[in-house]
Simulated assay, not measured.
Amino acid sequence: MILLISDLHLEEGRPDITRAFLDLLNGRARGAESLYILGDFFEAWIGDDAMSPFQRSICQALRILSDSGTRVFLMHGNRDFMIGHGFCKAAGCTLLKDPSVVNFNGEPVLLMHGDSLCTRDEAYMRMRRYLRHPLTLWVLRHLPLSTRHKLARKLRSESRAQTRMKANDIVDVTPEEVPRVMNESGVKTLIHGHTHRPAVHQVQLGGTTAQRIVLGDWDREGWLLQIDGSGFHLESFAFEA
């Protein structure tokens, strides 16, 4: 059994989400072969050297799961793209490139966070290229902590404001981009998060029907994708009171 989750946006202000995540680690994930976290695991991340006690507790929980035998894989999202190898080493997880092709049930599957599929949002794509540039990342990691905190708050505030102003189709994936990246990677299954629109979509690749599975965000409820011998199962679950 393999589990995939995305867009938890973990932060101290949402203890209900944190409890649900820890319940997953102590329950179903403990017996899984692997757990994949496809980005936006944290609401914000300003550097491995700036971990708060809350973030350290999450790191330790992942380490316990990893030590139990479940392999843990983590992909950057647009909120936590500064997570580095220091965190992953401490958490016992492997940092995955975005995109990555993995093998599930003998089938190549493309994993992405999903933001790079939103190519119609040209302003965001320009900002993404700038922020992910190695030189920019080096500069950001060497800024004083107080400056990084201010910059993170500013970016989050601007992101929320701009998202509210943009049309729904702009902040969703570009339909033409999906078959392009799937054909380029030679896969018939794409799994991603980011858009907060959980669903299983059929995709036409020439004369072949493929699938795009969108993981849901953890806000009013939790979402996960379970892959086992019977296939791919996207499900939601309520947070415990």
Rank of each mutant, 00 (worst) to 15 (best):
H9Q: 15
M112H: 08
V200P: 13
M112G: 12
K150A: 11
G207M: 01
D115T: 03
I37Y: 01
H113F: 07
F104G: 06
T70A: 00
M125H: 04
L95I: 07
V187A: 04
A29G: 13
G193F: 05
L111R: 10
E235K: 15
I37D: 04
R63F: 12
V214R: 09
P198G: 00
G31N: 09
G84C: 09
R180T: 12
M82N: 14
F41K: 06
N78P: 07
K188M: 03
L234I: 11
N105I: 08
E43H: 15
R212D: 00
V72Q: 00
A44G: 10
I58T: 05
H9G: 09
L131V: 10
D80N: 11
E240W: 02
F87Q: 11
D23M: 06
C59L: 13
D16H: 13
A123Q: 09
V109P: 06
I227D: 00
L135M: 12
H194F: 08
W223T: 02
L143M: 15
G84L: 09
D7S: 08
P53L: 05
L22K: 15
T70F: 00
Q204Y: 09
I2K: 04
A91S: 09
Q211F: 13
I17N: 03
F239Q: 05
L4R: 02
R79P: 14
T18S: 14
D121V: 02
D48L: 09
L96G: 03
H149G: 06
Q162L: 04
G216Y: 08
H85W: 10
L74Y: 06
I5K: 01
N103W: 02
C59A: 14
V181H: 05
D23H: 03
L205D: 07
R56L: 13
T189H: 05
T208A: 05
L135W: 12
V173N: 01
I213P: 01
G206V: 00
E158Q: 14
R79S: 07
E176Q: 10
S34D: 05
W223V: 02
E33K: 13
L10D: 06
A210L: 12
S68W: 13
R129W: 01
G216N: 04
N168G: 10
I83S: 04
S116K: 15
V203E: 10
S66N: 01
R71I: 03
W218M: 00
I213V: 15
M1W: 05
H133Y: 08
Y130E: 08
D40P: 14
F54Y: 13
L143N: 03
R141I: 06
F81L: 06
S52R: 09
K154V: 03
R126G: 11
S57Y: 11
K188E: 08
E158A: 15
S66W: 01
R132M: 12
W45F: 04
F73D: 08
T208E: 09
